[in-house]
Design a protein around this nucleic acid. Sequence first.
DNA 1: TCCAATCATTTTATACTTAAAGTAATTTGG
DNA 2: CCAAATTACTTTAAGTATAAAATGATTGGA
Lengths: 164, 164
Amino acid sequence: MILDSETKAVELPEDHGDEIRLWLRLLTCTTLIEGEVRGRLRERFDVTLPRFDLMAQLDKVPDGMTLSDVSKRMMVSNGNVTGLVERLVESGHLDRRTSDADRRVQVIRLTKAGRAEFRKMAAEHELWIADIFADLTPKDVRELMRLLAKTKASAQKSAKARTA
Amino acid sequence: MILDSETKAVELPEDHGDEIRLWLRLLTCTTLIEGEVRGRLRERFDVTLPRFDLMAQLDKVPDGMTLSDVSKRMMVSNGNVTGLVERLVESGHLDRRTSDADRRVQVIRLTKAGRAEFRKMAAEHELWIADIFADLTPKDVRELMRLLAKTKASAQKSAKARTA
DNA sequence: TCCAATCATTTTATACTTAAAGTAATTTGG
DNA sequence: CCAAATTACTTTAAGTATAAAATGATTGGA
């Protein structure tokens, strides 16, 4: 605790340059990789990243999920999902129906064609990611996983503290 | 090298699950923090993250920079910068003038008011970031910096190989 | 029962983003 | 010097994204 001449707690402006630089580097890395993936998806499959991401969520479940589920998992707004789903239904990748139990709820699923298309894309996508991270050793990967988990927890705690 | 019965090279489908998980975690972390920063900027200063980022670029230089410079540094498209600058000039944060030496070039600078406003935002922003990363030890931060630098280099190499 | 609160989704308004095509200015090779 | 290439920026079209308000459905408590 730093005290001033009158023995009261004082807020000395601390230097947070390291954290700022870390955040910028994290952002740069993500932007770089995201741009690369986006470009390859467009080039190879003429599909956008948000559509791919949405299909990836749905591929994990056989019986579909609600728009809210998708919205939470993708960490995007509801309205965003509405539009995305609209276009994917239009293009035949998704199937959408109103829940019998609760007519507020829309359940969306991959169509057969949509799933097949996604599996093709996902297989290549996996190779791209492997290539992008190719210079990291298995130890690097483990260590990054650990540190990012810690970062995520710290960020969530901070976010929670603000909202509370 | 893996060979099949006819002694030709074969591509066995390797498992890249670790890399995929790493990428998803990286993305999750960034999205989480970005959302948090975006929310706070809007709440406290009614400003968007892209505008803040653009002003941050300009704050680093006294005499302004060209739109292309900004575009490269922010890793976004030219057209994107055109629109952002338009709105920031409109709101009085930015000053824009055509270069005397080359009439294709637009040089943009923070106005006095714009710089003052940015400094206020930046000071708080720094505290938010510090808080978001608060649970990381200095050693964690150093290690993350190192691993992200390695990741960035690896990704750039992969991107370059594709374009080449 | 019924109505107020809640919930899931959609709509609206605004802003951001990209890729690609277009415009205008400058540079360069013949 | 001049046409072709390049450069800097803008425009366009489509899509992605948010916050906030609106709509419609469900639920829980008086």
